[in-house]
Design a protein around this nucleic acid. Structure first.
Length: 871
RNA sequence: GGGCGUAUAACUCAGCGGUAGAGUGCUACCUUCACACGGUAGAAGUCCCAGGUUCGAAUCCUGGUACGCCCA
């Protein structure tokens, strides 16, 4: 048996145990086991980065479930994987190329891809090892990458099917264009940020010279592409102008004044310029009104020749300055207001996006969205916390077609080929060798790739082998639980549900648990620019993985974000250490013949501990089943610290050190049950203790790894009942009363003084009382305790006294007793009042009345004793 | 503009119809043979505000206020 150190050395334990579990295939799914399946898919982390605190949380929680379900006898299949993260990855590798003085155009598509693959291979290893460090009990034999060949096959299958069904189509449309990464984005990837800007009021003179009207705009450079000015059809200020022509300043064009209901009469002047080529609203209005669209800004965010020779080639923001300056010079700038505007930027690059019309692939998801809405409405998919349903409903009922093509190299290539000869479009699973229309052999594949989320949307079933009807798919699909962050509810969860219902005719998972977001100690979002990022890897080094996990778990109250503080991490580390030391104390006092096979000898304290274990274990099991992780953690924290360490071990100390084998066996059983219960949350420290204390004492045939043992809810010991368990809490009260008495009268805590007590039922605890409260002896007697040399206090069911010899100060004692009496009277006042209130007594539930009456009686009894002592 | 969430002890948060809790911090004391990453005792809160429902509201309802997030 190994001697345990004074403190838990998490650094060595963490590395050792994961390797052991992995080698034992503890976490591999066992489809042939005959156990019921329980399955989850790991939200695949991007290959681009390190594990951050969000991952640590999002993976710790399902790991608790996975370990719990495994212990409960399920065949757990938790599939890991990583995501290729199209834009994010390409940006990083391009940055590396730039540092090397080259770029992707110089390298060419194929060599650029080779570079990304090499980078991906290395990063994947890193992130997988970080998942191991976190303790995530994943089935690595089933690990996937979103661009694995069979996952690519699933992507092509969906694309081709959807194309044939008319769900996927290609066409020119206004999309949000990221001029930095040079690709189209979907609406979801657009982030609206508030920027301080201006609202420029510009005079547009009438063509007939009869004055001008004034338009207000936040983007004056786009005026070069204006093809109309719009007013509201019911705006009395302007109705007479509808149909007139204005001369567009800085150009030689004349454009009409038109009417359209979308114009907001209260914004600016109530006149808006229309630039159908560069604004989504104007684009829509242009289509409605049949207006031409003039493209004045290109894909490089520079002005095109159509903007006019004076502006062509200028960056859009340079052009803005020039336009404003020239308008001012011409006296056409009526007014400039400061204005806070919502600017569309790229979620990834932060670049200001440019709405542009471009040829892209789209997916119509209207039908799938209806199915997804229905699945949640009828309860086939349940959300925790439920309030996310409201946002879900809103988004899915207003869903737009999804722009799925990206002008990126890294990703799933779109399986579409155009015949170079006749232009026929072929959408096929495999590259066609000849055109079906004209038999030409030269076919060019679409250079674009698919939105990263296109493959992620298929994740729960593609990783199980879909579209093949594999055994894994039959057994583990749909998944039981999907744990993920609520910030990707649309990006990912909605799309998985839509895809699952469309392509597998099944929900992809039954329950969705949305974890919180992790913030810093003051509640601010962690970001590199703020410098408040807490690195989980560093935390694991400093406090231990178990402490990190326990912290995140115990702060995971549904619906609130987590403010992570060092104080909380310390507290969790201390908790692990407390457990470690309790175990160490037990181990130090166990002889070889004490094993889990020995029949435990039970006394009052043991029956009380059994009751506590049974209650808490029941509550913990329910809490975890209902995703109330924080509640489970809190219950266990107090079970270990207050009940097991502070109360039970203190009471059982004598037995532990000098008791029988049977008495020690009981203590060992309790420790074992605690380890089993805590293991899903803090796997490393529990496995380490298990090895040091329990393994050599296990019954034959029991798994030697804690991670493989059964959840103790149905442990036979927990069913045992006996003794008067109410004595333990009463003993606690008695103990506290003695300690308080010593403290109040300034008795040195270490000084052993003689004591007396009239609560005779607690005599069995006399030895423990003497030891813990440091009393010389305790005289349990029914006779009156008050005496000139003693100080007294009142407890539940009796009186206690300390022998003070010549140190007693009668005046001070009198004052203390009087103070106690005042306190009791003050507490009794509302109780008496409510019990005297007839409407309460008659209308409140009997249990509530009885409870209150009990409290009142207890206090009345104490009061009576105090009054007696005061003479 | 619409929606969601949050306001409880100095801090971070639980509780969400039966009269106020935890962790950390703070005060005093204690190195007692598991643990100072420990122990004992203690101080500390008009549960954001105003109405309403109820025998009873931190908890439910209505209306404010402040902060955060999402969508437009």
């Amino acid at each position: 048996m190994r001697e345990m150190d004074k403190a838990f050395d998490f650094k060595t334990a963490q590395g050792r145990w994961y390797a052991t579990w992995e080698a034992a295939k503890t976490f591999e799914a066992k489809p042939a086991s005959g156990k019921p399946p329980f399955s989850m898919s790991l939200p695949p982390p991007n290959i681009t980065g390190n594990l951050h605190m969000g991952h640590a949380l999002a993976y710790s929680l399902p790991d608790v479930l996975a370990r719990l379900k495994r212990a409960q006898g399920f065949d757990v299949c938790w599939v890991p994987g990583v995501d290729h993260a199209g834009i994010a990855t390409q940006i990083i590798v391009e940055r590396k190329l730039k540092e090397e003085g080259t770029d992707r155009h110089q390298l060419g598509r194929d060599r650029f891809l080779e570079r990304i693959w090499a980078w991906k291979d290395q990063n994947q290893v890193d992130i997988e090892n970080q998942l191991r460090r976190l303790g995530a009990s994943l089935d690595w034999s089933r690990k996937r990458f979103t661009m694995d060949p069979d996952l690519n096959r699933a992507v092509r299958k969906v694309f081709v099917e959807a194309y044939r069904q008319g769900r996927i189509y290609r066409g020119p449309r206004m999309i949000q264009w990221d001029p930095v990464s040079r690709t189209a984005l979907s609406d979801l990837e657009v982030k609206h940020v508030e920027r301080n800007g201006h609202l420029w009021h510009i005079n547009y003179p009438f063509a007939d010279g009869s004055g001008h009207l004034t338009v207000a705009t936040t983007r004056p450079e786009t005026m070069l592409g204006d093809t109309a000015v719009a007013v509201h059809p019911e705006d009395a200020r302007y109705t007479h102008l509808i149909g007139k022509l204005v001369r567009l300043p800085l150009t030689d064009r004349e454009i009409p004044v038109v009417a359209d209901g979308f114009v907001d009469q209260d914004f600016g002047t109530g006149c808006v310029k229309l630039t159908p080529a560069h604004d989504p609203n104007d684009h829509a209005a242009g289509l409605r009104l049949g207006l031409p669209a003039i493209v004045v800004i290109g894909f490089d965010a520079k002005m095109t020749p159509a903007a006019g020779a004076a502006y062509a080639g200028l960056d859009r923001f340079e052009c803005r300055k020039k336009v404003v300056a020239e308008l001012e010079a011409l006296g056409l700038l009526a007014k400039v207001q400061t204005h806070i505007s919502q600017v569309a930027t790229s979620d990834r690059t932060g670049a200001v996006l440019e709405p542009l019309v471009s040829e892209q692939w789209f997916m119509n998801v209207a039908d799938a969205a209806q199915k997804a809405l229905q699945a949640v409405r009828d309860g086939r998919i349940a959300f925790t916390p439920q309030h996310h349903v409201a946002v879900w409903e809103h988004w899915l009922t207003n869903i737009q077609d999804w722009c799925i093509s990206r002008q990126l190299v890294w990703g799933h290539r779109i399986p579409a080929w155009t015949c170079a000869a006749c232009g026929h479009l072929h959408v096929e699973l495999e590259a066609p060798t000849a055109c079906s229309e004209c038999a030409a052999a030269k076919l060019d594949q679409d250079p674009d790739t698919l939105d990263t989320w296109f493959s992620s949307a298929l994740w729960p079933f593609s990783i199980l082998g879909w579209p093949d009807e594999t055994a894994d798919l039959a057994r583990y699909y749909p998944n039981d639980v999907m744990c993920t962050s609520y910030d990707i509810i649309f990006f990912w969860v909605a799309r998985m549900v839509m895809s699952g219902l469309t392509w597998t005719d099944s929900i992809p998972f039954r329950q969705v648990y949305f974890n919180s977001l992790v913030r810093d100690a003051s509640g601010a979002k962690m970001s590199k620019s703020k410098g408040n990022v807490i690195d989980p890897l560093e935390v694991m080094d400093e406090f231990g993985t178990d402490a990190l996990r326990f912290t995140l778990i115990s702060m995971s109250a549904p619906g609130t974000d987590i403010a992570l503080s060092p104080a909380k991490l310390e507290s969790s580390r201390n908790f692990c250490n407390k457990l470690w030391n309790a175990a160490r104390f037990v181990q130090m006092n166990l002889t070889d013949e004490v094993t889990l096979s020995v029949e435990p000898e039970l006394g009052e304290a043991e029956y009380w501990m059994i009751r506590r274990l049974r209650e808490v274990l029941g509550k913990v099991t329910t809490a975890l089943d209902e995703f109330r992780f924080h509640e489970a953690a809190d219950l266990l924290y107090h079970l270990v610290w207050d009940d097991f360490c502070a109360t039970y071990i203190e009471l059982a100390k004598i037995n532990l050190m000098n008791g029988t084998v049977g008495q020690k066996a009981a203590i060992l059983q309790f420790l074992d049950i605690l380890l089993l219960t805590l293991h899903p949350m803090v796997p490393f420290v529990t496995e380490e203790i298990h090895e040091a204390v329990v393994v050599d004492r296990l019954p034959p045939g029991e798994p030697r790894l804690l991670a493989e043992r059964a959840w103790p809810l149905t442990h036979p010991l927990l069913a045992r009942e006996g003794g008067d368990i109410s004595l333990v809490p009463r003993f606690q009260d008695l103990l506290t009363a003695f300690l308080r008495l010593k403290a109040e009268y300034g008795v040195d805590p270490a000084k052993r003084v003689a004591a007396a007590c009239t609560v005779l039922e607690l005599k069995p605890f006399a030895e423990a009382l003497k030891a813990i409260a440091r009393l010389e002896n305790v005289d349990f007697t029914a006779t009156e305790l008050a005496s000139p040399t003693r100080v007294v206090a009142v407890v539940s069911g009796g009186t206690i006294a300390l022998e003070m010899a010549g140190l007693k100060d009668p005046v001070a004692e009198q004052a203390k007793l009087e103070k106690e009496r005042e306190k009791l009277l003050k507490e009794l006042e509302p109780l008496r009042g409510r019990l005297a209130d007839e409407s309460f007594v008659t209308k409140a539930p009997a249990a509530a009345v009885a409870k209150l009456r009990g409290q009142a009686e207890e206090k009345e009894a104490r009061l009576k004793q105090i009054v007696a002592l005061l003479g």
